[in-house]
Design a protein around this nucleic acid. Sequence first.
RNA 1: GGGGAGUUACCCAAGCGGUCAACGGGGUCAGACUGUAAAUCUGAUGGCUUUGCCUUCGCAGGUUCGAAUCCUGCACUCCCCA
Length: 433
Amino acid sequence: MSVAPDLLAEFEARGLVHQSTDPAALREWLATPGRRIYAGFDPTADSLHVGHLVALMLLRRVAAAGHEPVAVIGGATGMVGDPSGRSEERNLLSPTELAANIAGVGGQIRAILAAAGPAGPLAGRVHVVDNADWMRDVGYLAFLRDVGKHVPLAQMLGKDSVKSRLERDGGLSYTEFSYMLLQAWDFVHLADVLDCRVQIGGSDQWGNITAGIELGRRLRGCDLHGITCPLLTKADGTKMGKTAAGAIWLDPARTSPYRFYQYWINLNDDDAGRCLLRLTELPLEEIRSLDEARAATPAARETQKRLAAEVTRLVHGEEGLAAARQATDIFFGAEITALDDAALAEIFADVPSGEFPRSALDGDGLPLVDALEATGLAKSKGAARRTIEQGGGYVNNRRVADVAYRLTPRDLAGAATLVLRSGKKSYALARFH
RNA sequence: GGGGAGUUACCCAAGCGGUCAACGGGGUCAGACUGUAAAUCUGAUGGCUUUGCCUUCGCAGGUUCGAAUCCUGCACUCCCCA
Protein backbone atom coordinates (compact mmCIF):
# COMPACT_ATOMS: atom_id res chain seq x y z
CA MET A 1 0.00 0.00 0.00
CA SER A 2 1.39 3.37 -1.00
CA VAL A 3 1.20 6.49 1.11
CA ALA A 4 -2.43 7.25 1.92
CA PRO A 5 -3.84 10.37 0.23
CA ASP A 6 -4.79 13.07 2.68
CA LEU A 7 -8.32 12.01 3.54
CA LEU A 8 -9.03 15.05 5.68
CA ALA A 9 -7.97 17.44 2.93
CA GLU A 10 -10.22 15.53 0.54
CA PHE A 11 -13.14 15.89 2.94
CA GLU A 12 -12.51 19.59 3.36
CA ALA A 13 -12.19 20.20 -0.35
CA ARG A 14 -15.57 18.61 -0.87
CA GLY A 15 -17.30 20.58 1.87
CA LEU A 16 -17.79 17.51 3.98
CA VAL A 17 -16.46 18.76 7.30
CA HIS A 18 -18.85 20.49 9.64
CA GLN A 19 -17.06 19.89 12.92
CA SER A 20 -14.08 17.76 13.82
CA THR A 21 -11.90 17.04 16.77
CA ASP A 22 -8.26 18.19 16.68
CA PRO A 23 -7.39 18.18 12.94
CA ALA A 24 -3.66 17.87 13.56
CA ALA A 25 -4.05 14.70 15.63
CA LEU A 26 -6.52 13.33 13.14
CA ARG A 27 -4.21 13.98 10.22
CA GLU A 28 -1.35 12.30 11.97
CA TRP A 29 -3.37 9.18 12.77
CA LEU A 30 -4.66 9.03 9.21
CA ALA A 31 -1.17 9.24 7.74
CA THR A 32 -0.81 5.48 8.13
CA PRO A 33 -2.75 3.43 5.57
CA GLY A 34 -5.23 0.80 6.66
CA ARG A 35 -6.83 2.83 9.47
CA ARG A 36 -10.34 1.89 10.43
CA ILE A 37 -13.05 4.54 10.48
CA TYR A 38 -16.67 3.99 11.26
CA ALA A 39 -20.12 5.35 10.62
CA GLY A 40 -23.35 4.00 11.99
CA PHE A 41 -26.70 3.35 10.33
CA ASP A 42 -29.78 2.72 12.42
CA PRO A 43 -32.29 0.40 10.76
CA THR A 44 -35.35 2.61 11.19
CA ALA A 45 -36.83 1.40 7.88
CA ASP A 46 -36.18 -1.50 5.54
CA SER A 47 -34.37 0.80 3.15
CA LEU A 48 -31.95 3.70 3.36
CA HIS A 49 -32.81 6.95 1.60
CA VAL A 50 -30.74 9.63 -0.10
CA GLY A 51 -30.12 11.28 3.25
CA HIS A 52 -27.86 8.34 4.08
CA LEU A 53 -25.82 8.71 0.92
CA VAL A 54 -23.41 11.28 2.34
CA ALA A 55 -22.37 8.90 5.11
CA LEU A 56 -22.07 5.99 2.68
CA MET A 57 -19.95 8.12 0.39
CA LEU A 58 -17.77 9.12 3.31
CA LEU A 59 -17.09 5.44 3.94
CA ARG A 60 -16.31 4.89 0.27
CA ARG A 61 -13.86 7.80 0.35
CA VAL A 62 -12.27 6.20 3.39
CA ALA A 63 -11.78 3.02 1.40
CA ALA A 64 -10.58 4.91 -1.67
CA ALA A 65 -7.95 6.59 0.48
CA GLY A 66 -6.53 3.22 1.45
CA HIS A 67 -8.19 2.95 4.84
CA GLU A 68 -10.81 0.47 5.99
CA PRO A 69 -14.36 1.68 6.47
CA VAL A 70 -16.49 0.09 9.16
CA ALA A 71 -20.24 0.32 8.66
CA VAL A 72 -22.13 -0.35 11.85
CA ILE A 73 -25.72 -1.44 11.51
CA GLY A 74 -27.62 -0.47 14.62
CA GLY A 75 -29.34 -3.73 15.44
CA ALA A 76 -29.01 -2.81 19.12
CA THR A 77 -29.33 0.97 18.93
CA GLY A 78 -32.29 0.54 16.61
CA MET A 79 -34.07 -1.20 19.46
CA VAL A 80 -33.83 2.02 21.45
CA GLY A 81 -34.14 4.91 19.01
CA ASP A 82 -31.85 7.90 18.56
CA PRO A 83 -33.37 11.15 19.85
CA SER A 84 -30.88 13.26 17.83
CA GLY A 85 -32.53 15.55 15.35
CA ARG A 86 -35.96 14.33 16.37
CA SER A 87 -38.62 16.51 17.90
CA GLU A 88 -40.72 13.64 19.20
CA GLU A 89 -40.28 10.28 20.84
CA ARG A 90 -39.91 7.45 18.35
CA ASN A 91 -42.16 4.47 18.30
CA LEU A 92 -40.37 1.28 19.18
CA LEU A 93 -39.88 -1.17 16.34
CA SER A 94 -41.01 -4.74 16.81
CA PRO A 95 -38.23 -7.37 16.69
CA THR A 96 -39.68 -8.71 13.43
CA GLU A 97 -39.67 -5.29 11.80
CA LEU A 98 -36.19 -4.66 13.07
CA ALA A 99 -34.89 -7.93 11.65
CA ALA A 100 -36.35 -7.08 8.25
CA ASN A 101 -34.88 -3.58 8.42
CA ILE A 102 -31.45 -4.87 9.35
CA ALA A 103 -31.52 -7.26 6.41
CA GLY A 104 -32.63 -4.54 3.98
CA VAL A 105 -30.28 -1.83 5.17
CA GLY A 106 -27.36 -4.24 5.52
CA GLY A 107 -27.78 -5.45 1.95
CA GLN A 108 -27.79 -1.89 0.63
CA ILE A 109 -24.71 -0.91 2.61
CA ARG A 110 -22.78 -3.94 1.39
CA ALA A 111 -23.82 -3.35 -2.21
CA ILE A 112 -22.85 0.29 -2.20
CA LEU A 113 -19.54 -0.26 -0.50
CA ALA A 114 -18.78 -3.04 -2.97
CA ALA A 115 -19.66 -1.05 -6.10
CA ALA A 116 -16.87 0.11 -8.36
CA GLY A 117 -16.22 3.85 -8.54
CA PRO A 118 -15.14 5.94 -11.53
CA ALA A 119 -11.57 4.88 -10.82
CA GLY A 120 -12.34 1.17 -10.56
CA PRO A 121 -12.89 -1.01 -7.48
CA LEU A 122 -12.23 0.50 -4.07
CA ALA A 123 -8.88 -0.20 -2.50
CA GLY A 124 -9.61 -0.67 1.16
CA ARG A 125 -11.15 -3.63 2.90
CA VAL A 126 -14.70 -3.09 4.09
CA HIS A 127 -16.24 -4.13 7.41
CA VAL A 128 -19.97 -4.37 7.96
CA VAL A 129 -20.98 -5.23 11.50
CA ASP A 130 -24.10 -5.20 13.65
CA ASN A 131 -23.84 -3.66 17.09
CA ALA A 132 -26.39 -6.15 18.40
CA ASP A 133 -23.58 -8.71 18.13
CA TRP A 134 -21.74 -7.15 21.05
CA MET A 135 -24.64 -5.44 22.82
CA ARG A 136 -27.11 -8.30 22.93
CA ASP A 137 -25.45 -10.21 25.75
CA VAL A 138 -24.43 -7.29 27.89
CA GLY A 139 -26.44 -7.38 31.12
CA TYR A 140 -28.13 -4.25 32.40
CA LEU A 141 -26.28 -4.29 35.71
CA ALA A 142 -22.96 -4.87 34.03
CA PHE A 143 -23.65 -2.02 31.63
CA LEU A 144 -24.53 0.36 34.45
CA ARG A 145 -21.35 -0.55 36.33
CA ASP A 146 -18.96 -0.69 33.36
CA VAL A 147 -20.27 2.13 31.22
CA GLY A 148 -22.84 4.22 33.06
CA LYS A 149 -20.54 4.80 36.00
CA HIS A 150 -18.11 6.67 33.75
CA VAL A 151 -20.55 9.07 32.19
CA PRO A 152 -21.39 12.19 34.20
CA LEU A 153 -25.06 13.13 34.10
CA ALA A 154 -24.17 16.78 33.54
CA GLN A 155 -22.49 15.82 30.29
CA MET A 156 -25.50 13.84 29.10
CA LEU A 157 -27.90 16.62 30.01
CA GLY A 158 -25.72 19.11 28.16
CA LYS A 159 -26.17 17.47 24.77
CA ASP A 160 -28.32 19.43 22.33
CA SER A 161 -30.36 16.39 21.46
CA VAL A 162 -31.39 16.04 25.10
CA LYS A 163 -31.69 19.73 25.94
CA SER A 164 -33.94 20.60 23.04
CA ARG A 165 -36.21 17.70 23.83
CA LEU A 166 -36.45 18.54 27.53
CA GLU A 167 -37.55 22.05 26.63
CA ARG A 168 -40.44 20.68 24.61
CA ASP A 169 -43.73 19.50 25.97
CA GLY A 170 -43.21 15.89 25.01
CA GLY A 171 -39.85 15.56 26.74
CA LEU A 172 -38.10 12.28 26.11
CA SER A 173 -38.12 8.88 27.71
CA TYR A 174 -35.35 7.33 29.76
CA THR A 175 -34.93 4.88 26.89
CA GLU A 176 -34.06 7.51 24.31
CA PHE A 177 -32.05 9.42 26.87
CA SER A 178 -29.86 6.33 27.25
CA TYR A 179 -29.27 6.06 23.52
CA MET A 180 -26.02 7.97 23.56
CA LEU A 181 -24.52 5.53 26.04
CA LEU A 182 -25.05 2.69 23.60
CA GLN A 183 -23.48 4.59 20.74
CA ALA A 184 -20.63 5.70 23.00
CA TRP A 185 -20.02 2.11 23.96
CA ASP A 186 -20.03 1.07 20.28
CA PHE A 187 -17.18 3.46 19.64
CA VAL A 188 -15.12 2.16 22.57
CA HIS A 189 -15.83 -1.43 21.58
CA LEU A 190 -14.73 -0.83 17.99
CA ALA A 191 -11.58 0.84 19.26
CA ASP A 192 -10.93 -2.27 21.36
CA VAL A 193 -11.51 -4.91 18.71
CA LEU A 194 -10.65 -3.12 15.45
CA ASP A 195 -8.48 -0.25 16.65
CA CYS A 196 -11.08 1.97 15.01
CA ARG A 197 -10.47 5.46 16.34
CA VAL A 198 -12.46 7.77 14.12
CA GLN A 199 -16.21 8.05 13.84
CA ILE A 200 -17.89 10.02 11.11
CA GLY A 201 -21.52 11.00 10.79
CA GLY A 202 -23.99 13.76 10.06
CA SER A 203 -23.85 16.97 12.06
CA ASP A 204 -26.72 15.74 14.24
CA GLN A 205 -24.41 12.98 15.47
CA TRP A 206 -21.85 15.28 17.08
CA GLY A 207 -23.28 14.76 20.56
CA ASN A 208 -23.27 10.99 20.26
CA ILE A 209 -19.78 10.95 18.79
CA THR A 210 -18.29 13.14 21.49
CA ALA A 211 -19.99 10.97 24.10
CA GLY A 212 -18.02 8.04 22.69
CA ILE A 213 -14.78 9.99 22.63
CA GLU A 214 -15.28 11.03 26.23
CA LEU A 215 -16.07 7.49 27.30
CA GLY A 216 -12.97 6.17 25.52
CA ARG A 217 -10.76 8.61 27.38
CA ARG A 218 -12.26 7.82 30.78
CA LEU A 219 -12.43 4.07 30.26
CA ARG A 220 -9.30 3.33 28.21
CA GLY A 221 -7.32 6.55 28.26
CA CYS A 222 -7.27 6.43 24.45
CA ASP A 223 -7.62 9.24 21.93
CA LEU A 224 -10.65 8.88 19.74
CA HIS A 225 -11.63 11.32 17.02
CA GLY A 226 -14.78 12.46 15.31
CA ILE A 227 -15.78 14.23 12.13
CA THR A 228 -19.26 15.37 11.25
CA CYS A 229 -20.41 16.52 7.86
CA PRO A 230 -23.07 19.13 7.21
CA LEU A 231 -26.55 17.79 6.70
CA LEU A 232 -27.41 17.90 3.06
CA THR A 233 -30.06 20.55 2.53
CA LYS A 234 -31.44 22.21 -0.53
CA ALA A 235 -31.34 25.91 -1.30
CA ASP A 236 -34.92 26.27 -0.09
CA GLY A 237 -33.92 24.91 3.29
CA THR A 238 -35.69 21.59 3.00
CA LYS A 239 -33.87 18.32 3.55
CA MET A 240 -32.26 16.73 0.56
CA GLY A 241 -34.20 13.71 -0.57
CA LYS A 242 -37.58 14.84 0.65
CA THR A 243 -40.19 15.53 -1.97
CA ALA A 244 -43.84 16.33 -1.75
CA ALA A 245 -44.45 12.69 -2.57
CA GLY A 246 -42.18 11.46 0.25
CA ALA A 247 -38.57 10.42 0.69
CA ILE A 248 -36.36 9.24 -2.14
CA TRP A 249 -35.37 5.72 -1.16
CA LEU A 250 -32.50 3.59 -2.32
CA ASP A 251 -34.74 0.53 -2.62
CA PRO A 252 -35.98 0.32 -6.22
CA ALA A 253 -39.24 -1.18 -4.97
CA ARG A 254 -39.89 2.02 -3.03
CA THR A 255 -38.44 4.55 -5.46
CA SER A 256 -37.97 3.38 -9.01
CA PRO A 257 -34.60 4.04 -10.66
CA TYR A 258 -36.41 6.43 -13.00
CA ARG A 259 -37.76 8.57 -10.17
CA PHE A 260 -34.44 8.35 -8.38
CA TYR A 261 -32.65 9.55 -11.51
CA GLN A 262 -35.19 12.32 -12.06
CA TYR A 263 -34.73 13.59 -8.54
CA TRP A 264 -31.13 14.52 -9.30
CA ILE A 265 -31.91 15.82 -12.78
CA ASN A 266 -34.39 18.25 -11.29
CA LEU A 267 -32.11 19.77 -8.66
CA ASN A 268 -31.35 23.44 -9.06
CA ASP A 269 -27.86 24.47 -10.13
CA ASP A 270 -26.42 25.27 -6.72
CA ASP A 271 -27.73 22.14 -5.06
CA ALA A 272 -26.52 20.01 -7.94
CA GLY A 273 -23.09 21.58 -7.72
CA ARG A 274 -22.85 20.82 -4.04
CA CYS A 275 -24.05 17.25 -4.54
CA LEU A 276 -21.42 16.72 -7.19
CA LEU A 277 -18.80 17.38 -4.54
CA ARG A 278 -20.40 15.45 -1.74
CA LEU A 279 -22.11 12.54 -3.43
CA THR A 280 -19.86 11.63 -6.32
CA GLU A 281 -16.31 10.40 -6.66
CA LEU A 282 -15.53 12.51 -9.67
CA PRO A 283 -12.09 14.08 -9.41
CA LEU A 284 -12.10 17.68 -8.26
CA GLU A 285 -10.72 18.93 -11.60
CA GLU A 286 -13.66 17.36 -13.38
CA ILE A 287 -16.10 18.94 -10.97
CA ARG A 288 -14.44 22.30 -11.52
CA SER A 289 -14.86 22.01 -15.26
CA LEU A 290 -18.51 21.10 -14.76
CA ASP A 291 -18.87 24.21 -12.59
CA GLU A 292 -17.48 26.29 -15.43
CA ALA A 293 -19.74 24.60 -17.93
CA ARG A 294 -22.71 25.29 -15.69
CA ALA A 295 -21.84 28.98 -15.46
CA ALA A 296 -21.31 29.27 -19.20
CA THR A 297 -24.17 27.15 -20.53
CA PRO A 298 -26.60 26.45 -17.73
CA ALA A 299 -29.26 25.25 -20.15
CA ALA A 300 -27.19 22.22 -21.05
CA ARG A 301 -27.70 20.91 -17.51
CA GLU A 302 -24.45 18.99 -17.65
CA THR A 303 -24.07 19.04 -13.90
CA GLN A 304 -27.46 17.51 -13.24
CA LYS A 305 -27.01 14.86 -15.91
CA ARG A 306 -23.61 13.87 -14.66
CA LEU A 307 -24.73 13.86 -11.03
CA ALA A 308 -27.80 11.78 -11.80
CA ALA A 309 -25.75 9.30 -13.80
CA GLU A 310 -23.09 8.90 -11.12
CA VAL A 311 -25.46 8.51 -8.20
CA THR A 312 -27.93 6.29 -10.03
CA ARG A 313 -25.17 4.01 -11.26
CA LEU A 314 -23.81 3.66 -7.76
CA VAL A 315 -27.17 2.82 -6.21
CA HIS A 316 -28.92 0.94 -9.01
CA GLY A 317 -26.03 -0.25 -11.16
CA GLU A 318 -25.49 0.09 -14.91
CA GLU A 319 -28.79 -1.66 -15.65
CA GLY A 320 -30.71 0.64 -13.33
CA LEU A 321 -29.12 3.69 -14.93
CA ALA A 322 -29.90 2.37 -18.41
CA ALA A 323 -33.53 1.77 -17.42
CA ALA A 324 -33.81 5.24 -15.93
CA ARG A 325 -32.37 6.80 -19.07
CA GLN A 326 -34.66 4.82 -21.32
CA ALA A 327 -37.65 5.88 -19.26
CA THR A 328 -36.44 9.49 -19.37
CA ASP A 329 -36.21 9.39 -23.17
CA ILE A 330 -39.75 8.14 -23.34
CA PHE A 331 -41.20 10.50 -20.78
CA PHE A 332 -39.70 13.51 -22.46
CA GLY A 333 -39.36 12.31 -25.96
CA ALA A 334 -40.80 10.71 -28.92
CA GLU A 335 -43.87 8.77 -29.79
CA ILE A 336 -44.12 5.35 -28.25
CA THR A 337 -44.25 2.50 -30.71
CA ALA A 338 -43.62 -1.21 -30.52
CA LEU A 339 -42.58 -1.69 -26.94
CA ASP A 340 -43.58 -4.89 -25.21
CA ASP A 341 -45.91 -4.80 -22.24
CA ALA A 342 -43.19 -5.80 -19.78
CA ALA A 343 -40.98 -2.89 -20.82
CA LEU A 344 -43.93 -0.52 -20.64
CA ALA A 345 -44.85 -1.75 -17.17
CA GLU A 346 -41.24 -1.30 -16.09
CA ILE A 347 -40.85 2.19 -17.50
CA PHE A 348 -44.21 3.33 -16.22
CA ALA A 349 -43.86 1.65 -12.85
CA ASP A 350 -44.62 4.88 -10.99
CA VAL A 351 -47.59 5.73 -13.07
CA PRO A 352 -51.23 4.95 -12.33
CA SER A 353 -53.01 2.57 -14.61
CA GLY A 354 -56.51 1.64 -15.56
CA GLU A 355 -57.80 -1.79 -16.50
CA PHE A 356 -60.32 -2.24 -19.31
CA PRO A 357 -61.90 -5.24 -20.95
CA ARG A 358 -60.26 -6.02 -24.24
CA SER A 359 -63.62 -5.82 -25.93
CA ALA A 360 -63.79 -2.08 -25.18
CA LEU A 361 -61.50 -1.50 -28.16
CA ASP A 362 -63.71 -3.41 -30.57
CA GLY A 363 -66.18 -1.84 -32.94
CA ASP A 364 -66.15 1.94 -32.61
CA GLY A 365 -63.64 1.69 -29.81
CA LEU A 366 -63.30 3.35 -26.42
CA PRO A 367 -63.77 7.14 -26.29
CA LEU A 368 -60.48 8.76 -25.32
CA VAL A 369 -62.42 11.02 -22.98
CA ASP A 370 -63.66 7.98 -21.04
CA ALA A 371 -60.19 6.49 -20.85
CA LEU A 372 -58.68 9.73 -19.53
CA GLU A 373 -61.32 9.91 -16.86
CA ALA A 374 -61.14 6.22 -15.91
CA THR A 375 -57.35 6.31 -15.45
CA GLY A 376 -57.60 9.37 -13.25
CA LEU A 377 -55.83 11.72 -15.65
CA ALA A 378 -58.96 13.86 -15.70
CA LYS A 379 -61.37 14.39 -12.82
CA SER A 380 -64.42 14.28 -15.06
CA LYS A 381 -65.24 13.77 -18.69
CA GLY A 382 -65.71 17.51 -19.00
CA ALA A 383 -62.17 18.04 -17.73
CA ALA A 384 -60.94 15.39 -20.15
CA ARG A 385 -62.61 17.17 -23.05
CA ARG A 386 -61.11 20.46 -22.01
CA THR A 387 -57.65 18.94 -21.83
CA ILE A 388 -57.97 17.56 -25.35
CA GLU A 389 -59.43 20.78 -26.71
CA GLN A 390 -56.49 22.71 -25.31
CA GLY A 391 -53.96 20.39 -26.83
CA GLY A 392 -53.02 18.47 -23.73
CA GLY A 393 -54.28 15.03 -24.69
CA TYR A 394 -51.81 12.39 -25.86
CA VAL A 395 -51.96 8.73 -26.82
CA ASN A 396 -48.55 7.04 -26.84
CA ASN A 397 -47.01 10.53 -26.71
CA ARG A 398 -48.76 11.56 -29.91
CA ARG A 399 -51.00 14.58 -29.49
CA VAL A 400 -54.66 13.93 -30.18
CA ALA A 401 -56.66 17.04 -31.05
CA ASP A 402 -60.00 15.39 -31.72
CA VAL A 403 -62.29 15.43 -28.70
CA ALA A 404 -64.34 12.58 -30.16
CA TYR A 405 -61.28 10.36 -30.71
CA ARG A 406 -61.87 6.68 -29.94
CA LEU A 407 -59.19 4.18 -28.97
CA THR A 408 -59.04 1.07 -31.13
CA PRO A 409 -56.59 -1.86 -31.32
CA ARG A 410 -54.40 0.23 -33.63
CA ASP A 411 -53.54 2.46 -30.66
CA LEU A 412 -51.99 -0.30 -28.60
CA ALA A 413 -48.29 0.33 -27.97
CA GLY A 414 -47.68 -3.19 -26.69
CA ALA A 415 -49.75 -6.33 -26.91
CA ALA A 416 -52.44 -5.05 -24.55
CA THR A 417 -51.20 -1.72 -23.24
CA LEU A 418 -51.24 1.85 -24.37
CA VAL A 419 -49.94 5.03 -22.80
CA LEU A 420 -52.15 8.02 -22.06
CA ARG A 421 -50.83 11.41 -21.14
CA SER A 422 -52.32 14.68 -20.01
CA GLY A 423 -50.19 17.76 -20.36
CA LYS A 424 -46.44 17.55 -20.08
CA LYS A 425 -45.90 15.08 -17.33
CA SER A 426 -49.00 13.20 -16.25
CA TYR A 427 -49.02 9.69 -17.56
CA ALA A 428 -51.29 6.70 -17.12
CA LEU A 429 -51.20 3.23 -18.53
CA ALA A 430 -54.34 1.69 -19.96
CA ARG A 431 -54.35 -2.10 -19.94
CA PHE A 432 -56.80 -4.19 -21.91
CA HIS A 433 -57.48 -7.75 -20.85
C1' G B 1 -81.17 36.89 27.73
C1' G B 2 -81.50 41.52 24.15
C1' G B 3 -79.73 43.86 19.50
C1' G B 4 -76.92 43.73 14.88
C1' A B 5 -74.09 41.37 10.77
C1' G B 6 -73.25 37.18 8.01
C1' U B 7 -73.53 31.86 5.59
C1' U B 8 -72.15 31.97 -2.61
C1' A B 9 -68.34 26.90 -6.32
C1' C B 10 -61.39 24.02 -3.82
C1' C B 11 -60.22 28.99 -0.81
C1' C B 12 -61.20 34.35 -0.53
C1' A B 13 -64.97 37.24 -2.45
C1' A B 14 -68.82 40.09 -5.82
C1' G B 15 -73.86 39.65 -7.12
C1' C B 16 -79.36 41.81 -4.10
C1' G B 17 -86.08 39.57 -9.02
C1' G B 18 -85.06 37.86 -15.32
C1' U B 19 -79.46 38.70 -20.05
C1' C B 20 -76.46 33.96 -13.52
C1' A B 21 -73.41 27.85 -13.96
C1' A B 22 -73.04 33.04 -11.20
C1' C B 23 -67.74 39.31 -11.70
C1' G B 24 -62.80 39.39 -9.61
C1' G B 25 -58.45 37.27 -6.98
C1' G B 26 -55.90 32.82 -5.21
C1' G B 27 -55.34 27.78 -6.26
C1' U B 28 -55.62 24.01 -9.90
C1' C B 29 -55.46 22.16 -15.03
C1' A B 30 -53.99 22.94 -20.22
C1' G B 31 -51.18 25.88 -23.92
C1' A B 32 -46.90 29.28 -25.31
C1' C B 33 -42.07 30.52 -23.75
C1' U B 34 -37.96 27.92 -21.19
C1' G B 35 -32.94 24.66 -18.90
C1' U B 36 -37.49 18.54 -17.22
C1' A B 37 -35.68 25.54 -13.30
C1' A B 38 -37.89 30.26 -11.89
C1' A B 39 -40.68 34.11 -13.79
C1' U B 40 -44.10 35.69 -17.51
C1' C B 41 -48.16 35.46 -21.00
C1' U B 42 -52.85 32.90 -22.95
C1' G B 43 -57.03 29.82 -22.18
C1' A B 44 -59.97 26.78 -19.03
C1' U B 45 -62.04 25.65 -14.26
C1' G B 46 -70.30 22.04 -11.56
C1' G B 47 -71.98 17.41 -14.25
C1' C B 48 -73.61 14.95 -18.66
C1' U B 49 -75.59 11.11 -23.75
C1' U B 50 -72.62 19.13 -24.86
C1' U B 51 -75.22 24.03 -30.50
C1' G B 52 -78.80 21.11 -25.71
C1' C B 53 -80.05 19.07 -20.95
C1' C B 54 -79.49 18.33 -15.55
C1' U B 55 -77.89 19.91 -10.59
C1' U B 56 -75.72 24.13 -7.63
C1' C B 57 -75.52 30.09 -4.10
C1' G B 58 -76.29 27.13 4.67
C1' C B 59 -81.14 23.84 5.33
C1' A B 60 -86.62 23.48 4.75
C1' G B 61 -90.85 25.70 3.06
C1' G B 62 -93.40 30.00 0.58
C1' U B 63 -94.40 34.41 -2.91
C1' U B 64 -93.70 34.97 -8.36
C1' C B 65 -94.63 33.54 -15.22
C1' G B 66 -89.46 33.58 -13.25
C1' A B 67 -85.40 33.65 -7.01
C1' A B 68 -78.43 33.28 -5.35
C1' U B 69 -81.48 37.73 -5.11
C1' C B 70 -88.19 38.82 -1.78
C1' C B 71 -90.97 36.34 2.69
C1' U B 72 -91.23 32.56 6.90
C1' G B 73 -88.99 28.97 9.96
C1' C B 74 -84.52 26.28 11.34
C1' A B 75 -79.12 25.57 11.85
C1' C B 76 -74.34 27.57 12.28
C1' U B 77 -70.58 31.84 12.55
C1' C B 78 -69.14 36.76 14.04
C1' C B 79 -69.91 41.62 16.60
C1' C B 80 -72.28 44.87 20.41
C1' C B 81 -75.19 45.26 25.10
C1' A B 82 -76.35 42.27 29.70
